[in-house]
């Protein structure tokens, strides 16, 4: 890992209009899927992005690749602001940054062979032609642990784990620097998950990739990541070295998340004290004022209502958490916008 930042997000926002379009615009609100994320991803590292469903982690991953338009903030990829990119430049970004999707049964076109799927980036970017292309496809298939002679087969002939390998081969075809894995192991069985996790780790080392590993599974994230970022309701609430975040979290939400992860050790499980959160995650269309976790936080106190906490260094070197328990730092809630738009 070098100290060089490959992807840098500043105040990134992805807001979706809710309610109807056309005649029903009167009812429209705003869904704050990603709501002010600052994040640096260093070249050659694996950053784990964890959070529960609806926290915006997938949307953020898509936004970093410009697959979802941002409504605010800026994203720099290798020093270039990509939020305004057009045409050829955006195509180049697509070559340099790939994505592995969750469901290996949906992410491969059922009507195209493995070779056609894996060679698509090569054709799109005019990287290889004819015999070279076939050789490169074979090389990619072997790289992900598949036999090169499966190239002519269709996706329905493969198991989930094999399909996911095909998906990874496609993402790697353009020799990207940056790979986003969006819940890439969530639909796989435990033993197959392990195969894919090991493969991703091996590829990351072998190819010097920068990896953003998005998952709801804290155990898998901690296993594969150098650093972990925790998202809650559209915001990164804690970030730091995997070891520190995974064993000594500083933000009450991370602590609750960590304590809710079931461990396969019966004795530990019996001794463990759980922080059981009450209630549900608020809707991203009605984000609480101040600290967005305060409605479920067991430690919430006065400043949490009014001051939106900023990330501040705390705990291990490189660890940051957005929590007033470590000192009240942040922007006071401004009533018109900061307060929820509850009907």
């Amino acid at each position: 890992m070098s100290g060089e930042v490959l992807v840098s997000a500043r105040g990134v926002e992805v807001h979706f209009p809710t309610g109807g379009r056309g005649f029903r615009t009167a009812q429209a609100g705003v869904l704050r899927a990603v709501d002010g994320v600052d994040l640096d991803i260093y070249r050659g590292e694996t950053l784990g992005l964890v959070g529960e469903s609806g926290c915006g982690k997938s949307t953020l991953g898509n936004a970093l690749l410009r697959l979802v338009p941002t409504t605010g903030g800026s994203i720099a990829f290798d020093g270039t602001d990509i939020t305004g990119l057009q045409g050829r430049r955006i195509k180049e970004l697509r070559r340099r940054a790939g994505m592995v999707f969750q469901d290996p049964f949906a992410s491969l076109d059922p009507r195209r062979t493995v070779a056609q799927t894996v060679s698509e980036p090569l054709e799109v970017h005019g990287l290889r032609k004819g015999r070279d292309k076939a050789a490169r496809v074979a090389e990619l298939l072997e790289l992900v642990g598949l036999d090169a002679n499966v190239a002519g087969r269709y996706p329905h002939e493969f198991s989930g784990g094999q399909r996911q390998r095909v998906g990874i081969a496609r993402a790697l075809a353009g020799e990207p620097d940056f790979l986003v894995c969006d819940e890439a192991i969530a639909s796989l069985d435990v033993s197959v998950q392990a195969q894919v996790l090991n493969l991703l780790r091996r590829l990351q080392r072998q190819l010097g990739l920068t990896l953003l590993f998005i998952s709801h599974d804290l155990s898998a994230v901690r296993h594969i990541s150098d650093r972990i970022a925790v998202m809650y309701l559209g915001r990164v609430v804690e970030i730091g070295p995997a070891e520190a975040v995974g064993t000594d979290p500083q933000m009450p939400y991370t602590q609750a998340l960590l304590s809710a992860v079931p461990l396969p050790h019966p004795k530990l499980e019996r001794e463990r004290k759980r922080v059981v959160l009450t209630g549900d995650v608020p809707s991203p269309a009605a984000v609480p004022s101040g600290c967005r976790f305060r409605t479920r936080c067991p430690y919430a106190f006065e400043p949490c209502d009014d001051v939106d906490p900023a990330l501040q260094p705390v705990g291990a070197p490189g660890q940051q958490a957005a929590c007033h328990l470590h000192g009240v730092v942040g922007t006071p809630a401004t009533t018109p916008d900061g307060v929820t738009a509850t009907p």
Partner: peptide, 28 residues
């Protein structure tokens, strides 16, 4: 070897029935 190419069927959740994997590819 643990990370070897695997031949075969349904290792993902509730999907892919049986040993279709070794059927040769036929155009649709």
């Amino acid at each position: 070897p643990p990370d070897a190419p695997v031949a075969g069927q349904g290792d993902a959740k509730g999907t892919s029935p049986g040993p279709t994997a070794l059927r040769p590819a036929r155009p649709r």
